[in-house]
């Protein structure tokens, strides 16, 4: 569907991990059209002359039949911190749904790092409603950053397998270890998370001969293809706009050796 720009009122904001909020906005038209893996640009608009902030891209974390759009926000810098401080009842400006999402027609094995979990909450719920099997593997650096697993299960009907690097929550280690142990090789592999994790996942997929879809993250200006800011390196060496050609790509279509350019 064509992207819509709407005021989105915050219905509920819930601290789900350190510096990490699960926010549900009232935005029925965008909720109705969004697909797993698509994103929205979330910002404050131009209404307040003392506030200048570029909107930021967020994966759609969930949609509900009642018109809610769920967003997972981790406060990294001033901008994301400002968004986390929005109070229930206040509104932000949401532009979306944007970009191309994940395939949703076959069993999936999803690997999430950090807030890369967000699109897979949506996808797991989508799969539950469409009666398709999904496995959710979720890694964080430490237990304090782990999104409440009971809450994930309530949102998606899916129990995530949790890994932390320091072993303070779930299994000690990295998400890739789950794949090497036991893996549903006939399912589509999907990934979203830090670039190092995605690169390792892409190498794994090549090694074992599985198809992999990844959701990439690059600094974005506009979200709709005009600013040409959010490029990633394609397998053919060309720069590809992640906002309209992605953010979900077949991993084989990207150049993982020169992904960052430097």
């Amino acid at each position: 569907m064509e992207p819509l720009r709407r005021r989105a009122r915050l219905l509920s904001g819930r601290l789900v991990a350190r510096d990490t909020w699960w926010m549900e906005f009232d935005c029925p038209e965008i909720a109705a059209g969004a697909l797993p893996g698509q994103f929205v640009m979330l910002g404050k608009g131009l209404g307040d002359p003392l506030t200048w902030m570029l909107p930021r891209p967020f994966s759609v974390g969930l949609t509900r039949p009642g018109g809610q759009v769920g967003i997972l926000i981790r406060a990294y810098g001033e901008g994301s911190r400002a968004l986390c401080r929005v109070r229930e009842g206040d509104s932000l400006v949401m532009l979306g749904p944007l970009g191309r999402g994940f395939s949703t027609d076959q069993p999936a094995e999803c690997v999430a790092g950090g807030v890369g979990l967000a699109p897979f909450i949506f996808l797991a719920d989508w799969y539950r409603r469409h009666d398709l099997p999904v496995r959710l593997i979720y890694g964080e650096r430490d237990g304090g950053a782990v999104f409440d697993p009971g809450f994930i299960a309530r949102l998606t009907g899916c129990e995530p397998e949790i890994f932390t690097e320091d072993g303070s929550h779930g299994r000690r280690g990295r998400v890739l270890e789950a794949l090497s142990r036991d893996s549903a090789a006939n399912s589509l592999l999907m990934g979203c998370g830090p670039s190092g994790m995605l690169r390792a996942l892409a190498e794994h997929a090549v090694r074992v001969g599985r198809r992999l879809e990844v959701s990439v993250e690059e600094h974005m200006g506009c979200g709709v293809g005009t600013c040409q800011g959010c490029v990633v390196r394609g397998a053919g060496g060309d720069w590809i706009k992640s906002c309209i050609a992605g953010p979900v790509f077949d991993a084989a279509d990207l150049d993982w050796d020169r992904a960052g350019g430097r």
Binding site: G229, C230, G261
Partner: peptide
């Protein structure tokens, strides 16, 4: 072809 990313960054 344009430059390598990041191509944009926010400032005050």
């Amino acid at each position: 072809p344009g430059n390598a990313p990041h191509r944009v960054a926010e400032t005050a």
